[in-house]
Design a protein around this nucleic acid. Structure first.
Length: 806
RNA sequence: GCCGCUGUGGCGGAAUUGGCAGACGCGCUGGACUCAAAAUCCAGUUCUCGCAAGGGAGUGUGGGUUCGACCCCCACCGGCGGCACCA
């Protein structure tokens, strides 16, 4: 009978569930393997075909590792705080908690229908107070170490978004919110901030120790943006008490500094501006402050600025240079002030050209009247560094500056501290109380978790604060001395829970610690982490930051959380475009499961191309995967659902070679996550098996084991026919006999001038001389060599003979 | 503009170390089975000339290194992703 996926998949999913087949416990006699998926946000849309691609890959590795004797931790959970639930609640009057619970139910059901070998006893949920108790606990440790602080800072304020909210820099794209596309303005506001910049160097340097895609490492390095240079101090003419510190990566060009620019928000601007320039400067400051980020970005092609009337003094030559303000200098980077070297910096060149400022070349080469010259070359017009190249000149100049107390070596980062508060209800409450006397205290650890108050009806506060601000009996507190206080109404961003969740899976029910040190020591680190490339910087940077902090306070045993990281590619629509509702090319995994079964979907997604690549969905290819599943079922199973008689203990040796090749290739390819090529070898084996009369039981058992990581339901059903054990999940992974792969005869290629002319079967390891003779004697070769003289013969034993002739 | 990745049949892709380009699958063509169709099984399928034997071309383009290049080097073109006044 034909394979009935419906019945068989349900049967084995039920078996795994009732037998807790994939329950993981610490077992120090076995090596551990931790395979992790990026846990999903349970959206109302349900699962997308993109989700199961990564999930199937980690599942296949988990299943293979179990069979190879590893103790495997393979968990799943829910990143369930998030904006959509809050928006839904505000819109409909429902509670985000119930809405989220419903979504999780749908997601879980869908995920379970795909037969993943998760240990569901370890399921976690970031919105569960038992989980966020520890998110809050980590926040308190950060606070105690001075890594969490409050600050009135310029934030990205999106007034039209959710009754007004603040979003992180990372969530702003082209001056608009990433979600919703609402305009964003820069305004000062009190925020919680995490001092991630303190870890900047380690976040860059430790990338060298992990097995991650180079592109992700590069993106993180760029995001952190370490740049090495110097701080230089400029005196201000007629202001003996003022000093301007600038950051530059090119201290060697100091003699070419012909003016300075301060950010319009710079503290010294008001102090040094001359009365004559005051009106103009203030008008410019006012204009700039009203610009949104969008406008600033859009207008940046054309540089703007105003002269302050003041002059700085170049420390190296005492020259007076004008001080301008301009918004191409950012207040938030470096010191908010620069020395401008228009001859050798494009931005400065544009500005100088527009405002007619002096341009002095200090490096030979190029023509500074037409463009800035940014290449290396011997220095000129530069007394102490004349003739030197860039590198030498930088060193020399820094030495000079340090000797004369006019500057020093300095490293700067693009990375800013992490704005950690959101004006939302549906997030982890920040466990802080602000007292009427001005003191702020943490909620004591033994009172955690600080729970979100249940609320029937969420309403925007209308003030830009979180909806929590309206819930009086939660916000207002009184201590034992009658002192009144208010709870912090900001909540944590969605990144909080995902910054440590992989640790909780190791010991998910522990009420005394984020996880026991026994569990942390045994399971750490994550051996394989698979997820989408969209988390290249944010999630993965925050997670590494928290992990390093927990390492520093002795909680976790490793410096890095994720040893190996892989980004699965996107599954595109059949038209090669990104799947989206509006394009009508979305494929729903539920439909595939009901039509073809989970094994077909899993097989297809692993076979369609390399895991890391984006590949278009192809209905025909999916159908082909199902055809192959049916084909291999028919190979072994007869019309009465029994093993065919061809499956026998008799081994005529016809499949020996291809079987051993298959074990080798499948084991190696799967280990490297090259599922598409491993599967193609399984197909080769089936094609060969169709050509022979007898199918040795030994090989067929090994074959069924090899398909089990990809097609676990069918594998279990076939395995049950052998009556060896109840489940295949912990059967020993097959091994191959290298002796069976050695040939005594090999086919070598004969080329003339690099073109293949003939093939020869020769004894393995035949001597070079013999190969040369054989090749030259070959009929085809002879024919092709008429009228030609052999100049040279290259012989690579067991591979090739190349005859060079003219 | 800068950084990273990438380019192979009609399509998805393979080629682990510089050594037979196109494994495997889809599609297509033919055959077997069938009254017929579907399904299945078998064979063929880079392009091109040729009845065939056999020949020629061929891994984005142009050059180079090499006995030999999808693979290494240089320049260019296209696609994808990231960053984008970060001094």
């Amino acid at each position: 009978m034909a394979y009935n996926h419906d019945v068989i998949e349900r049967k084995w999913q039920h078996y795994w569930k009732t037998h807790k087949t994939f329950k993981a416990d610490i077992d120090t006699t076995k090596p551990k393997y931790y395979a992790l998926d990026m846990f999903p946000y349970p959206s109302g849309q349900g699962l997308h075909v993109g989700h199961p691609e990564g999930y199937t890959a980690t599942d296949a590795i988990s299943r293979m590792r179990r069979m190879q004797g590893f103790n495997v931790l393979h968990p799943m959970g829910w990143d369930a705080f998030g904006l959509p639930a809050e928006q839904y609640a505000l819109k409909t009057g429902h509670n985000p908690k119930d809405f989220t619970a419903q979504n999780i139910k749908v997601f879980k059901h869908q995920i379970q229908s795909l037969g993943f070998s998760y240990d569901w006893d370890r399921e976690i949920n970031t919105t569960d107070p038992k989980f966020y108790k520890w998110t809050q606990w980590i926040f308190e440790q950060l606070y105690k170490k001075g890594l969490a602080y409050e600050d009135k800072i310029m934030v990205n304020w999106a007034p039209d978004f959710m009754g007004g909210t603040v979003v992180a820099n990372e969530e702003v794209v082209d001056g608009k919110t990433e979600r919703g596309g609402y305009p964003v303005y820069r305004v000062p506001m009190r925020q919680w901030v995490l001092r991630i910049t303190k870890y900047a160097d380690r976040l860059i340097d430790d990338l060298d120790d992990v097995d991650w895609p180079e592109s992700i490492k590069e993106q993180q390095r760029n995001w952190i943006g370490r740049s090495e240079g110097a701080s230089i101090f400029f005196d201000v003419d007629r202001h003996p008490d003022a000093k301007i510190e600038v950051f530059t990566t090119r201290p060697d060009t100091l003699y070419g500094a012909t003016y300075m620019v301060l950010a319009p928000e710079h503290d010294l601007v008001n102090q040094i501006t001359t009365p004559a320039q005051k009106t103009e400067v203030e008008a410019y400051q006012e204009e700039v402050s009203r610009r949104s980020d969008l406008e600033r970005t859009d207008l940046n092609k054309d540089k703007s600025g105003v002269f302050t009337g003041a002059y700085g003094i170049n420390p190296v030559n005492g020259k007076k240079i004008p001080i301008w303000i301009g918004d191409y200098v950012l207040a938030s980077y470096g010191t908010g002030a620069i020395m401008a070297v228009p001859a050798h910096d494009e931005r400065d060149w544009d500005f100088a050209t527009k405002f007619g400022l002096e341009i002095i070349p200090v490096i030979e080469g190029g023509d500074v009247t037409t463009a800035a010259f940014t290449e290396d070359g011997p220095h000129i017009n530069s007394d102490i560094v004349n003739g030197m190249d860039k590198k030498t000149a930088i060193h020399t100049m820094i030495d000079w500056l340090e000797e004369h107390h006019a500057g020093d070596k300095k490293v700067n980062y693009r990375l800013r501290d992490w704005i950690f508060s959101r004006q939302r209800y549906w997030g982890e409450p920040i466990p802080v109380i602000h007292w009427e006397d001005g003191e702020s205290t943490l909620v004591p650890e033994d009172e955690l978790p600080l729970r979100l108050p249940a609320s029937k009806q969420l309403e925007p506060s209308g003030t830009g604060e979180s909806p929590l601000a309206n819930i009086d009996d939660w916000v207002n507190v009184v201590d034992e001395n009658g002192r009144k206080g208010k709870r912090e109404t900001n909540t944590m961003p969605q990144w909080a829970g995902s910054s440590w969740y992989w640790l909780r899976y190791m010991d998910p029910h522990n009420d005394d610690a984020i996880a026991s040190s026994e569990a942390l020591n045994y399971w750490s680190p994550v051996d394989l982490y698979i997820g989408g490339a969209e988390h290249a910087v944010l999630h993965l940077l925050y997670a590494r930051f928290w992990h390093k902090f927990l390492y520093d306070i002795g909680v976790v045993p490793t410096k890095e959380p994720f040893q190996k990281l892989v980004n699965q590619g996107m599954i595109l629509g059949a038209n090669h475009e990104k799947m989206s509702k509006s394009k009508g090319n979305v494929v729903n995994p539920d439909d595939i499961v009901s039509q073809y079964g989970a094994d077909t979907l899993r097989l297809y997604e692993m076979f369609m191309g390399p895991l890391e690549d984006s590949v278009p969905w192809d209905e025909k290819g999916l159908h082909g995967s199902n055809k192959w599943i049916q084909r291999l079922w028919r190979l072994m199973i007869d019309d009465n659902n029994h093993l065919r008689d061809r499956v026998t203990t008799y081994n005529d040796g016809k499949l020996t070679k291809v079987y051993n090749q298959t074990v080798k290739k499948v084991t190696e390819d799967f280990s490297r996550l090259h599922f598409n090529t491993g599967i193609s070898q399984l197909m080769v084996f089936v094609n060969e098996a169709y050509k022979v009369d007898d199918l040795p039981v030994e090989y067929m058992e090994g074959f069924v084991k090899m398909i089990s990581p990809i097609m676990p339901h069918m594998a279990e059903e076939l395995w049950s026919q052998f009556n060896e054990s109840e489940t295949i999940a912990y059967q020993k992974w097959p091994t191959y006999d290298p002796a069976q792969l050695v040939e005594d005869e090999v086919e070598i290629v004969v080329q003339i001038n690099g073109k293949v002319k003939s093939h020869l079967k020769v004894a393995k390891d035949a001597a070079k001389d013999d190969l040369e003779k054989l090749a030259l004697a070959d009929e085809h070769v002879q024919k092709n060599l008429t009228d030609q003289t052999v100049r040279k013969v290259i012989v690579i034993p067991n591979k090739i003979v190349n005859i060079v002739a003219k």
